[in-house]
Write a protein that binds this DNA or RNA. Structure first.
Lengths: 176, 176
DNA sequence: CGGCTCATGTAATTCGTTACATGATTCT
DNA sequence: AGAATCATGTAACGAATTACATGAGCCG
């Protein structure tokens, strides 16, 4: 039984406590989405599948008349999460339109600096978002989310520096 | 008419000279795949679509009895490539199972160092591959592919350093 | 002659996003 | 009262991978 990585995102988040599909989505949007996003269109069907497979269990916890299902890990779900954590990570995918445009920038004047500036903006925005959630991550008892966040921060800072250097290089060439 | 980014990979590569689908695939595998991969399952159908749209043109250039179709950019294809290069890059997606495992590493002892070591291995392998193709990129008249490659090299080096620091930090914590 | 590279394609499947639909609760 | 948030879900679509099928040419 090989599950999708998104299924393990769910198992991983439920390991920290029971949640509804809605809560899972909002936690993802404030944490893993920087390196693994997930939408409702994945989460709800996946919750059903995982429940059918006995890895999680849903209990109805309505708030007033509004129906609400809270899921929690079962023993075999916890075991499956641990098994997955122990094996080698396989998926590493990047799709970066900015680098693509820089790669082909020879075909249009001005495209290079535009692509680099856009990347710089993107990195700075990401850095701001990461810094915003950092206090929360820092305060948590589990230190690993904060470690991942620090990786993201350092990477963004590195990328911003690189863009600045690349832009300076382009300007030198233009002057020559 | 909004094309997929993969379509622009094709237009961009054909800008540097006519190619067959097979050649496009092999150039992608030696260059853009680090930030934008493409498979035959995308390339051949896309070539047909682009030809129907009049952005590229295929001519039969058999080698012996083996059929072979070489595609080249049309005037409107070149124009469309330039248009795309001028607009803001939109797609930036990362799917990194290693960071995911590090994020959830609190649930399994040993998972953290395993995830970081795996990432380090991955980065070093990528670095080797990039260094292998660097001489070719450096020699090319178009300097932008080499610029992108240097970004990849610097990023990999940064990531390796980060992994080393993170592993040292984990060891300090274990000792404490 | 056998294996590798050149060359083209398709079918099935997976993965994921976007947009929509619906309705209750809480806050201002 | 109206807006924002909580909550659950589905349908349509798009993007991309994998696996398969087929066959010619080239090198040792």
């Amino acid at each position: 039984m090989e599950l999708s990585s998104t299924a393990y995102v769910i198992l991983g988040l439920l390991h920290k406590g029971p949640k509804t599909g809605y809560e899972i989505k909002s936690v993802v949007d404030h944490s893993t989405r920087f390196f693994w996003a997930a939408s409702y269109g994945q989460i709800y069907p996946e919750l059903r599948k995982l429940a059918e497979a006995g890895l999680i269990e849903g209990t109805s916890k309505p708030s007033g008349a509004r129906k609400r299902t809270e899921y929690r890990l079962t023993a075999s779900g916890r075991k499956e999460l641990r098994r997955w954590l122990e094996i080698e990570p396989a998926v590493f995918e990047l799709r970066d339109e900015g680098l693509l445009k820089l790669f082909f920038a020879g075909a249009a004047p001005g495209a290079a600096s535009k692509a680099i500036e856009a990347r710089r903006d993107h990195d700075e925005q990401k850095l701001r978002q990461l810094r915003e959630i950092e206090p929360m991550a820092k305060a948590a008892p589990d230190s690993f989310p904060h470690m991942v966040l620090r990786y993201g921060v350092a990477l963004s800072e590195f990328s911003i520096r690189w863009c600045d250097e690349a832009l300076a290089e382009l300007n030198r060439e233009d002057a020559a």
